[in-house]
Design a protein around this nucleic acid. Sequence first.
DNA 1: TGCATTTGATAACAAATGTTATCGTCTTCC
DNA 2: GGAAGACGATAACATTTGTTATCAAATGCA
Lengths: 191, 191
Amino acid sequence: MLFTFKNRFPNLNPYWEKYIALQQRVEYPAKTTLLREGKIAQNYYFIEKGCLRMWFDNQEKDTTFQFFFENEGVSSLESFQKNIPSAFTIETIEPSVIQILPKAVFNAMLKELDQNPDFLKALMEISFERQRHYMYEFLSRIRDTPIQRYVNLIKDRPHIVQRVPQHYIASYLGVTSVHLSRIKNQLARKK
Amino acid sequence: MLFTFKNRFPNLNPYWEKYIALQQRVEYPAKTTLLREGKIAQNYYFIEKGCLRMWFDNQEKDTTFQFFFENEGVSSLESFQKNIPSAFTIETIEPSVIQILPKAVFNAMLKELDQNPDFLKALMEISFERQRHYMYEFLSRIRDTPIQRYVNLIKDRPHIVQRVPQHYIASYLGVTSVHLSRIKNQLARKK
DNA sequence: TGCATTTGATAACAAATGTTATCGTCTTCC
DNA sequence: GGAAGACGATAACATTTGTTATCAAATGCA
């Protein structure tokens, strides 16, 4: 988040720099849980290297609904901001290098910049972007078949297909891994 | 939106009152299109009486993805703010009384309050709420079966089931109206 | 009032997707 | 280097959902 801010709102740079300096750099092996479903988020995570996924437990089945890669920030914002249990788990897929921003630091920043219109507008832009993301995902689930969704994924975000194990992609697409195999087979035969 | 503001941020009341006064009150019959998919949104609509739905054309099939009732505001925000074609249509379901806020008025307000932290925070809260809404809808599509979604709808938003024709509800749930009939039948037999 | 349209239920069949099980290959870790 | 587990493909069968068609009831409207 801070790095995103920094790149897009350089006029507030003095602030970003100050808070970025308070981050902590940590290396995690693959399949490490950063935030467990049901716990209260204590940190904001920024990915220096590696990738993460967000998922939740849906009747024993693990359902992935978002992937994150280098230079992206992650948290359960709802949990983070309101001190309520997180609705999902965040874990590493690959071994990853993460910059951790503790909640206390984030809150200090909020407090300091609380009356700064530029900062508020920056926050709002981030919020709009997240909104567009969920809107897009939502519409895609509604209107596209799993096959179309898979084709779109290959076209629009090929890095996901390349770096993420197939069963996570299947759950992200909303199908079983067996069915994703069928889809791949079907697409391969068409060519 | 203005009425929402007014109730929740009364400290800015002088502003709301001024702009609310510039709204225009119009009555529409049922099935009237307020904004057509592909057109650029020119107004923000506030429902005084009646109900609306948002839908888009998905390969000839009309797909409803949100309903609106009394005291709710509606627009294609993306289209409204960025002057791009709307991705969906907004139309009345019942005969409705609508308060129309023209874009020019809205923009004037934005300009006047652009540096006002309270206003920006108000805007942000609205944005967070919309974000939560789409997040919720998105997660519900992922984890719930159509039957569960229908049961939830009856439990959490019974007014929708009561006031909206079944084929719109079916498309909202993500099934055909034939299948929704089956679901209702199935639930009825269980009791 | 009466006719046309909309709405909703149901049946029969088709297509899509899930479930379970098996197998081979590839990774990981000691 | 070898064992255990993870990963992915495939087959057989079950379940869910869509498609098309038909009919009855409710509704809107001239």
